[in-house]
Structures are given as C-alpha cells and as structure tokens.
Design a protein around this nucleic acid. Structure first.
Lengths: 263, 263
DNA sequence: TAGTGGTCTAGACCACCGC
DNA sequence: CGGTGGTCTAGACCACTAT
C-alpha cells in the first residue's frame, strides 16, 4: 500500500521514459542536489535516453521516487527549461524539446573567446603594450583620457589560415598579460584566473569593406566584406574590464547561436 | 523584543535605499506576488529610485516587511538577477548593477521582427505567395520537398531609406498571411495571434558583398558589404515554423545586444 | 563572529488542460 | 472531472564574506 502508485507502464509513444533511469544522488557532495539531478537529466537528454517528446512524469511522483522535495525537483527542471532543453505546460506535463532546436548551445563570440581560444584555432599576439588611453577607449572603459591601458592585437588562425584580427583594450592596472600565456590560454581565461568575475557584455555586430591593411593581414582582397564586432565587457561590480574591436573574414567565419524566446 | 531588529539607518553611500520605497501588493490580483514585486523593483531601478550599487537589504527582513515568505521574495529577486539588473553575492548582499551594463535590454533581430516591425520602420511586401518548397527550404522547415510553403519578400525602410531585404518561408498550412495585415502588424505578431507559441531560434550572422540586384534594391553599390542573417524559428513543440534569410545594409544597420555570462 | 545568500523540506491551494 | 504545473508558506541548516 505504497502512497505512490506507478501506473502500468504506458507504452504510448513519448511517455514516461524516465521510469527506468537510474539516478544517483549524493547528499554528502558539495554539489547541490538540484544540480546533480539537472546534470543527470541533461545527460539523459543528450544521450537520447530521454527522447524528444518524452514526458518527464509529474513533479510530485518524481520527488517521491528521488527522495527529494518538490521545490528541489522543480529547481532542477527549471534550470533545464532555462537552457531550452525542456518545456513545461500546465495541465499537460514536462517534455523534452525536439532535437533540432537544441543543437548549438547558444552564445556568440564572447563564448568563443571565453572557451575555445588557444585551442584548435591558434592565436598570435602581434602587439602587447601599455599606452595612454585615446578618447574612444577611455569612454568605453570608463577611465580618464590618457590613463594607462593595455592594448592587444592578435591574429587568429584556423586550419593555418587567418580568420580574424582582434584588437582589445583593458585597464592596465587590472592584470598582467604576458604574451606567452596569452597565446596558449586565451584572454578571458586569464581574466578569470586573475579573479575577474564577468557579468555581461554589450555587443554590436556589423559589416564593412576591408581596408588595404586588413586585406593583407587576413589574406583577402581590398574591399572584401568583413564581419565586425565591437564589445564592452563588465564585471559583477559594473566596471568595464575590456573593450574589443574585432574583424572577421566573412568568407570563413559567421556568428552562430541560439535565441530562447522570453515568455 | 521583536525577532527582527532593524539596524539604525546606515547612511553610508549605497545602502538600504529600499527602506523608504512604498511597495503595494495585491493578493486578489491574478498577477503572481513575486511578479508584482519584481515589476516594482524593476521600476524603482529604472527610475533611479534604487541607484546602482544600492544594497537591497537582506531577504529575511525584506520578506517580513512585505508580508511575504522568503522563497517568494527570492523568486522576485532571482527574476531580476536573470535579467541582469541585480547581482547577488553570498555574505555581502544583493545590489543594483551599474547603469552602463543594462542599457539595451538584449536580443537581436528576432526581437526586431517580433516587436518593432511595422512601427517607425515601414515594411513593404514585395512578394507573398504559395509555392512548392525547394530542397533547401524543405530541409530547413522539415517538410517534404515540393510541399506547399508561403514565401514572403519584404523591403524594410527606416526614415524613408531601405535598410533590409527580408525573405521568409513558412509552412503554408500554418496560417493565413494577408498582405495588408503583414504591412501593418509584422510577421511575428501575426504568428503569435494565430496561436503559434515560439520557443527558440537558431541564427547565423555573416557578411558578403552585394549582388547587382541587392544593390539596386537597397540603394547601395554592387560589391558593398552587406550583413546577412539566416534563421530557423521553432515553436514549443519543436516544429520549425519559419525560415528567414535576410540581408541588411551594413552602412545603416548593425545587430546590437547584451550577453549575460552564465555563471 | 555576525550577517548574508544558497539550499532544502513538507506541506497547501489554485489555474489550466484534456477527457 | 482528474491530473498537471504555478504559486505560496514557514520554517531549517549550511557556506561564504567581512570585520
């Protein structure tokens, strides 16, 4: 006479695939329970164990089966809804979204710099010095004109061919940027390990024709279409910590990302 | 001997500006309490009543003062953290982010089509008919090649001058798209009022040189740099509902948005 | 050490959906 | 109508930060 009664395995397509999944929760772990659950659900979705359209089963049953409270289960589910992997509908249930929708995780070039820098693509530092801030840079970084800033110019290659020219400015007192580490580690990783916690960035993506210098550097013809990106990044205190001005070879690069619709 | 004791008004800069704010909560309203609170907090931030750097006061006090439970207050605060308006730090408190960080709400061209279509910018429909799907369109929309799709070609102007050429394909059975309504209402609004609930979109932004036809249409020179955007939009069931292929005059248009860093 | 947000529990009632 | 997620409560203990 258990308080929970599992209905006789409904084999209708797209139903309760969760029943047979073995979830393991470690209450001694420092990882929050809702996060452990979310990770395992996400893995099950990624591996196809939880197929698109599958219902997750109602939250009450789920919490009883897992030995968790309902709010904790909801928190796990909510995090996957926020990632776009699950959809909740009142009166219906929670189901896995169809696969086409969730292939590229999201984000744009900030992610690119943040994670994949110095990997498959190689980056060569062309310039790395401290100079007085120009009016434009000073305004973007919120420092006084003439204040010392670090200027960085880098050429990024993929498969041996140029992809982008990156110019970045940072307040000089913020951190040291030895060229060797920059080439192997990537700018954002270095900022993070220097204790700088990023909060957000404002970006503007545009296009224009290549100048003669840009063309030479990127192995394009003068006047070729280039993709441009300007960005100011802020840390959690709201202080601007980086101002970037990048140009990409449009013939070899595009910004790919996913948008979730705010409901 | 009240269980909560309010420390003597600290007047240090950036502290407890919330004390004097009058929040009104209506328990008979269909609007959730956490949402009412979030809206009023957001308004206070937007109007500057809650200045950047201001601490919000701890969640326990706040919930007592408002007559709400702590989880409800947390839910309100969390929604503003997700929007990038507030920052929480354990052991410190919750504070308003600095203003530069939060100027443009976020989103890119999906928002543009979703909200601002048919407003200041005017849109002229150049083509609106039903045709058999090409291989490319069929693949993008997940329909059979040759299935009936609606093709839309529009020219968008701002301040009387061309800004973008928009080409969209939709599964024909999805909805009716009378040209007159399209020009006044915008595509996404029409989809929404037809009961189509959007979930997400995959986008790719690139650049290339203008063809002769595009140049003529957009009042640019042949070979001028254009910004391009390709997008597939999905509804909550994961079904593709729109495939768009847009070109923008780079000299008069850029994608502007804010990224929040996933922590 | 005191104060903050982070996590978690065990209930409750309601609104919406599909049958 | 029964089942689902949506909202809300009133506690509890823990981890981190600053002083």
């Amino acid at each position: 006479m258990s308080p929970v009664h599992r209905s006789p395995q409904r084999t209708a397509p797209g139903d309760r695939a969760l029943d047979s999944l073995g979830f393991t929760l470690d209450r001694t772990s420092p990882v929050p329970l809702y996060h452990q659950l979310a990770q395992q659900l996400e893995a099950a979705i990624t591996h196809g164990t939880l197929a698109p359209g599958n219902l997750l089963g109602n939250e009450i049953d789920l919490s009883v089966r897992l030995g968790l409270s309902r709010p904790t289960v909801r928190q796990a589910i909510q995090s996957l809804v926020d990632k776009g992997l699950l959809v909740r509908r009142r009166g219906v249930g929670t189901q896995v979204v169809h696969s086409k929708v969730r292939r590229p995780l999201e984000l744009s070039s900030l992610y690119d710099d943040l994670e994949s820098a110095g990997q498959d693509p190689t980056t060569r530092v062309l310039r790395n010095e401290r100079i007085p801030a120009s009016a434009e840079v000073a305004a973007a970084l919120g420092v006084a004109e003439g204040a010392e800033v670090t200027v960085l110019e880098r050429l990024r290659r993929a498969h041996g061919r140029p992809v982008a020219f990156l110019c970045n400015h940072l307040p000089a007192p913020l951190l040291e940027l030895p060229t060797e580490r920059l080439e192997s580690t990537g700018l954002y990783r270095m900022m993070r390990s220097a204790g700088i916690v990023l909060h957000s960035a404002r970006q503007s993506i545009g296009a224009r024709a290549a100048t003669a210098e840009e063309a030479a550097l990127l192995e394009e013809k003068e006047g070729a279409a280039l993709l441009t990106m300007r960005r100011t990044a802020y840390d959690v205190t709201g202080r601007p910590v980086e101002y970037g001005s990048h140009v990409y070879r449009a013939s070899r690069y595009a910004f790919d990302f996913q948008l979730l619709v705010r409901t």
